[in-house]
Design a protein around this nucleic acid. Structure first.
Lengths: 353, 353
DNA sequence: ACCCATTTTGAAAGCGCTTTCAATTCGACC
DNA sequence: GGTCGAATTGAAAGCGCTTTCAAAATGGGT
């Protein structure tokens, strides 16, 4: 709808060859200051902006970085995206985001699409695609994995120390005096879900506490999943004083389940999450959780991707978790006799005293 | 890192000219079935995928659609993005998203970037950029505005009937018996924030109810803003039984402020939001709000953009709001004597209060 | 069988840029 | 002042595709 200015026009206008303009644009070679000034003034006068498609074609680089996120409408991954965007902001690169929907075939499609688009690098956030496929892709294009370990791509992984994180949660609750726990896990095929569950149960075990199998439920990392899992746990009829969730979203769902049963948080049950999604600080009560510096993780991921592109060495990054204690956890106060609760309300009972 | 297959290779392999392959790819002209079959088999055998950059350069279209969203980590806009992604999914087009951060200069940058990237169309979600700038841009590239009216671009706007929506909220609360209201507004420079506030106050006024100015606060559409606004309202010392928020995010913040003051929802105060963000159904208590079919709005926006690209006529779309009554609203039971709220006491409301 | 109007096809010219490669200019030095 | 190496510049060949344009193949009619 409007003729765009081309490099050739700039060159003509400035009385130099296209090559020279290109060199100035890319800093590829020395140019007389006088000519440089001339060209630059023409560029601003004409408001010239190089055509990325042409640059991509001629330069063999698309100047785009593909990002695969599990979902677009999540506060958690959204913040990672914000970090990536910020990191790329003053580089010539640009993110191009596709969601994988937690589905293998969708992730595969996304990957194919990105490769077809000739992205210069790929950032894979989470995801359930096989390590094997990822290592294979990594041979074609620089790849950074976020929130998961990929066998054979150790350097390009950015992960959180899930084990340490869960140990902090467990210790916090143990310190408060809790001995009866329930646990809501993420989808088991996701690596970090496994890590978190194992870390939690092991730590408890090491301190002489075991969790009854009925009180361990899978919540698929979603709010609905957390809600259903919490209901299943409440229905089990086994007493517990602390409910630990493998992420904040499930904690939110669980919170509603507890609310509906009239279970007071943290009065009757202490509740914890994982991630420190922004809205967790606004829950009623604000949620005790483990902070993942997800924005920074996104930032780092993008920077690492750029390093990879530069041929610079990258190194596996492990982010340290930070326990954020808010108001959803408290000592297990009053022992509450079984069956005392209002009608229709399943009750928790007696902490060990 | 791996030699990509080119159209020329396919042509050679299939014993036809590049032009023919191109024609088959784009359906630009008839081709003998026999040749078509031959070429297609070669394409699948070689797993050929056209280079989008080359297509863009030669075809004059970049096959991308620029999307400007206020922020990347919002459930609300995230869902719109999901809708856009879905709509574009089986078209050759692809979204490229930039966030505007509610800042004029940032939005302008985003727009410039998209134009520099030669996007074929632009979808502008919300935003505070001048109508004038947008109409100007719209002359260069097809533009769809979401959630705002742009003077002179009526056809390309997709909006919600904010007035009707707020009237529904007001009526609902009025019907419940509320007469004393407080209101938390969005940032005033945003069009819909104005529309909602005016609609709400006017409707109330028409029914003989006025809202004291101290009970009208601006919350910038953010959670923190909502929290602060609610505190200001509580500090005003003027009694009210219903707190109406111009979006769900502010309602979430306000909820926390109420919780901290020991104000029971909906026992002491009824709370309403706007948007029906996914997590609103999981608040404690689940939030009464107005549903914007934001995913569908995203879907529609993308389709309209495609229509615009096809040169087809587009028409202004007005989405109908739907009041979603949940548990955060109830009749105003006990009149609350001034200043009764317990300092520092946190009470959860229970369902069957 | 022949002619002419259609279809189908291929050759070739770009799209806007980068990047050799070779030519030109410059400056330092003898 | 002339020579040589280094620095600067321009011509031209692509990058992988689309799209005229004209040539070749087809087929219907007589």
């Amino acid at each position: 709808m409007m003729e765009a200015v081309t490099l050739a026009q700039v060159a003509r206008e400035a009385g130099v060859s296209p090559s020279t303009v290109s060199r100035i644009l890319n800093g590829t070679a020395n140019v007389t200051p006088e000519k440089r000034a001339r060209v630059e003034s023409v560029i601003t006068r004409l408001n010239y902006r190089p055509n990325p498609q042409a640059q991509a074609l001629a330069g063999g680089r698309s100047l785009t970085i593909g990002v695969i996120t599990p979902t677009l409408n999540s506060t958690f991954y959204g913040e990672a995206l914000a970090g990536i965007e910020a990191a790329l902001n003053d580089t010539p690169y640009h993110p191009i985001v596709i969601s994988g929907q937690w589905r293998t075939e969708r992730e595969q499609e996304a990957l194919d699409l990105l490769l077809a688009r000739r992205v210069d690098a790929v950032i894979m956030m989470g995801g359930i695609l096989d390590d094997q496929i990822l290592t294979h892709v990594a041979r074609r294009v620089p790849l950074i994995a976020v929130g998961r370990d990929v066998r054979g791509l150790d350097h390009s992984c950015i992960v959180l120390d899930n084990t340490k994180a869960m140990q902090q949660v467990a210790r916090h609750l143990l310190d408060l005096g809790h001995r009866q726990f329930a646990y809501i896990s993420g989808a088991e095929r996701q690596q970090d879900a496994m890590e978190r569950r194992v870390a939690f149960l092991d730590y408890l075990g090491a301190h002489g506490v075991t969790v009854p199998p009925e009180l361990i439920q899978v919540g698929r990392y979603t709010e609905e999943g957390g809600l259903e899992a919490a209901e299943a746990i409440l229905n089990a009829g086994v007493p517990f004083t602390a409910l630990v969730c493998a992420n904040d979203q499930m904690a939110l769902g669980a919170r509603l389940a507890l609310y509906r049963r009239g279970v007071n948080v943290p009065g009757d049950v202490s509740l914890t999450g994982f991630d420190d999604v922004f809205t967790s600080s606004l829950m009623t009560p604000p949620l005790t959780t483990v902070r993942q510096a997800i924005y920074d993780i996104g930032l780092t991921a993008a920077r690492e991707a750029l390093n990879l592109l530069d041929g610079q060495p990258v190194v596996r990054q492990v982010f340290e978790p930070e326990l954020i204690i808010r108001e959803s956890t408290a000592p297990p106060v009053r022992p509450r006799p079984e069956g005392r609760a209002r009608q229709g309300v399943k009750t928790m009972s007696t902490p060990d005293g």
